[in-house]
Computed example of a mutant assay.
Amino acid sequence: MLLRLPGVYRPQHDTQLLAGVLAAERLGPHSRVLDLCAGTGALSMAAAAAGAGRVTAVDVSRRAAISIRLNALARGHRIRVIHGDLTEHVRQERFDLVVSNPPYVPASVDTVPDRGPARAWDAGKNGRALLDRICCQAPDLLVDGGVLLLAQSGLSGVEKTLTMLEEQNMTVDVAATAEIPFGPVLVERREMLERRGLIEVGQTLEEIVVIRAVS
């Protein structure tokens, strides 16, 4: 079980789905992995356990950064932890693999919270406040043949993600999907999502998608 300070995103179905795809990647002592929006560091731990030689975890939350350090220490993994906004501190570096499970839940407003638990899931009205930035920034961090693994909801524009990455000259496909019951946040927002046509009336399942893009 991972240690988690209050307010840090608890690993759930999307993390598990992404970790399964990550496990299929070939990682070795020379592999450089970047985990964006790392939360507890679950994916960073998975990459280190799979043999990656250098793992960097980034999160905008100080509590998340502390949680990652604690989890790495408890498991004996050497993970570089950066408290910061996405790629701002690693723009001059290159990685073999970038993995991210960012906030992607459509909200009622476009303003993204800068504190509180909702920062772990709210991503603007279309759910793409972080997804769009990752699609634009992550390809520049990859070596030739490097891989981006990105999780998102079917409610937040899978086709747009595919198109944006293809426009960055990446080879893109959907590596995994799963349908999961609505969690508390989507249950609370069901009426709003129905009004906006993002879900069907009475819908209770959300599709989670993992996209794999190769530079």
Score class of each variant (00 low, 15 high):
residue 3 L to T: 10
residue 7 G to A: 09
residue 9 Y to G: 02
residue 10 R to G: 00
residue 11 P to L: 09
residue 12 Q to K: 13
residue 14 D to N: 03
residue 14 D to E: 13
residue 16 Q to D: 12
residue 18 L to D: 02
residue 27 L to G: 08
residue 30 H to E: 15
residue 31 S to E: 05
residue 34 L to H: 05
residue 38 A to R: 03
residue 38 A to D: 01
residue 39 G to E: 07
residue 41 G to H: 07
residue 42 A to F: 09
residue 42 A to V: 11
residue 44 S to Y: 09
residue 46 A to E: 13
residue 48 A to G: 11
residue 49 A to W: 08
residue 52 A to E: 01
residue 52 A to R: 01
residue 54 R to G: 02
residue 57 A to D: 07
residue 60 V to E: 10
residue 60 V to P: 04
residue 65 A to E: 07
residue 70 L to T: 10
residue 71 N to G: 07
residue 72 A to M: 11
residue 74 A to M: 14
residue 74 A to P: 00
residue 74 A to C: 01
residue 76 G to A: 06
residue 78 R to M: 08
residue 79 I to P: 07
residue 80 R to Y: 02
residue 89 H to N: 12
residue 92 Q to R: 14
residue 92 Q to Y: 11
residue 92 Q to P: 00
residue 93 E to W: 05
residue 94 R to D: 09
residue 97 L to Y: 02
residue 98 V to P: 13
residue 100 S to V: 04
residue 101 N to L: 02
residue 102 P to M: 01
residue 103 P to H: 09
residue 103 P to M: 03
residue 107 A to S: 15
residue 107 A to V: 02
residue 110 D to K: 06
residue 111 T to R: 14
residue 113 P to L: 03
residue 116 G to V: 07
residue 117 P to C: 03
residue 119 R to A: 15
residue 119 R to D: 02
residue 120 A to Q: 04
residue 121 W to G: 03
residue 131 L to T: 10
residue 131 L to M: 10
residue 138 A to Y: 09
residue 138 A to E: 03
residue 145 G to T: 01
residue 147 V to E: 01
residue 150 L to N: 02
residue 150 L to P: 08
residue 152 Q to R: 03
residue 154 G to S: 05
residue 157 G to M: 03
residue 157 G to F: 04
residue 159 E to A: 13
residue 164 M to H: 09
residue 167 E to K: 10
residue 167 E to M: 07
residue 169 N to G: 00
residue 171 T to N: 05
residue 173 D to R: 07
residue 175 A to Y: 06
residue 177 T to E: 14
residue 180 I to E: 11
residue 180 I to Y: 04
residue 182 F to E: 06
residue 183 G to Q: 05
residue 184 P to H: 06
residue 186 L to Y: 12
residue 190 R to K: 15
residue 191 E to Q: 15
residue 193 L to D: 14
residue 193 L to C: 12
residue 194 E to M: 13
residue 194 E to T: 14
residue 205 L to K: 13
residue 205 L to I: 08
residue 211 I to N: 04
residue 213 A to F: 01
residue 214 V to N: 04
